[in-house]
């Protein structure tokens, strides 16, 4: 037993924990600044200034917000199911962090380079609905419950077309490993040959993260705040952080699948001296900007229109595109081949 404890697996464990911290720390700061960026960007788009008082250019605003949230009282509704009520925000937050284990930030810069990386991401993102639905049910409130039901139906619907879009990418890349998918885009990013799928995927990520114009689960005008209406203080903050971390995660998924991950746009001199992780971060920021841009410019969908878009347009369209992609690759003899046995 002593031998078992003194083996170098403790060192290994420490190394893994250190790697996780290196990802999670900057991620949480990025989440904090994403909330600020959202308010500033939307402010400028609406010809206002946004928060600009706390610190230079309002840069300390996220910390002020965090302090305010922590100082608030945690309220447990009388009729709530206490256990599920407390688990729901934790689950949302944990799920938004564990997915980062497989995201490749650069060549060999990944915590867990697993063979089925894209399936892992897909699985984790499909679990996000549990936090929402558990919160809605445990709150024992009409508004929260309605918001949760809407959200569950919406997330399940858009996952289907997301899965089909991912199949398109896999057909071109020939691997489920995220690093291999990025490497396969060295010649051309998949956003170009699969442009329609790129658009479908981006819109689906908007729906998956419950962002405008698909933010019906938290539609203020009819549901107050949706599934987290009963939450306050840190439990609310966990939902909030989870939502924004999910946005960043979905953006990075878009970048890995369609925008060439850590690769520069062209492999020429001034572009390829910029390190890969930096390219990755720049691309994520651009996708996130589009998230905010969409929020500032589009009105909210009606619920039946949202369902129609998911099931009657995106699903058949991406299915047909799978057939087209496979057919094209087969005819031009470009299907990626793998060694069997």
């Amino acid at each position: 037993m002593i031998e078992f404890l003194t083996q170098d697996w403790i060192l290994e464990l420490g190394w893994i924990v250190a790697k996780i911290m290196v990802v999670i720390g900057p991620l949480l700061i990025a989440v904090a600044y994403l909330t600020l960026a959202e308010r500033r960007v939307i402010g400028f788009m609406q010809l206002r200034k946004g928060p600009n008082v706390v610190g230079p250019f309002g840069l300390f605003q996220p910390f002020a917000d965090a302090l305010k949230l922590m100082a608030k009282e945690t309220i447990m509704p009388a009729g709530a199911n206490k256990v599920v009520f407390m688990i729901a925000p934790m689950l949302t937050f944990i799920l938004s962090l564990v997915a980062w284990a497989v995201i490749p930030f650069g060549e060999d810069l990944v915590i867990a380079d697993i063979n089925v990386g894209i399936l892992y991401l897909f699985a984790i993102s499909s679990l996000g609905v549990y936090g929402v639905i558990m919160a809605g049910w445990a709150s024992n409130s009409k508004y929260a419950f309605l918001g949760a039901l809407r959200s569950a139906a919406q997330m399940v619907s858009y996952e289907v077309s997301m899965g089909l879009v991912i199949i398109n990418v896999l057909l071109c890349a020939g691997s489920l490993n995220l690093s291999a998918i990025v490497e396969a885009q060295r010649g051309m990013w998949f956003a170009l040959p699969l442009l329609p799928m790129f658009v479908v995927f981006f819109i689906s990520t908007l729906a998956e993260t419950n962002r405008a114009p698909f933010d019906l689960p938290e539609g203020e005008s009819e549901l107050v705040a949706g599934y987290f209406v009963e939450y306050s203080s840190m439990s609310f903050a966990l939902f909030f952080l989870g939502e924004y971390a999910n946005m960043i995660l979905m953006s990075s998924m878009t970048v890995v699948l369609f925008l060439g991950g850590w690769l520069p746009p062209f492999d020429i001199w001034p572009l390829n001296i910029i390190p890969g992780p930096l390219w990755f971060i720049i691309k994520i920021m651009m996708v996130l900007f589009v998230f905010l841009w969409v929020r500032a410019t589009t009105p909210r969908y009606r619920y039946d229109q949202l369902m129609r878009l998911g099931w009657k347009i995106f699903l058949p369209f991406s299915l047909i595109y799978v057939v087209l992609t496979a057919g094209f690759l087969l005819v031009t003899d470009r299907l990626p081949t793998v060694a069997l046995s």
């Binding site: 063979n115 399936l119 639905i133």
Partner: peptide
């Protein structure tokens, strides 16, 4: 069998059980 593991999570946890939960809650 990592592929089966992920499939189990995607299909059963991500879709089937959501619908179970959906129905049972209502």
């Amino acid at each position: 069998a990592e592929f089966l593991a992920m499939l189990l999570v995607v299909v059963y946890v991500g879709a089937v059980a959501v619908l179970f939960l959906f129905v049972v809650m209502m």
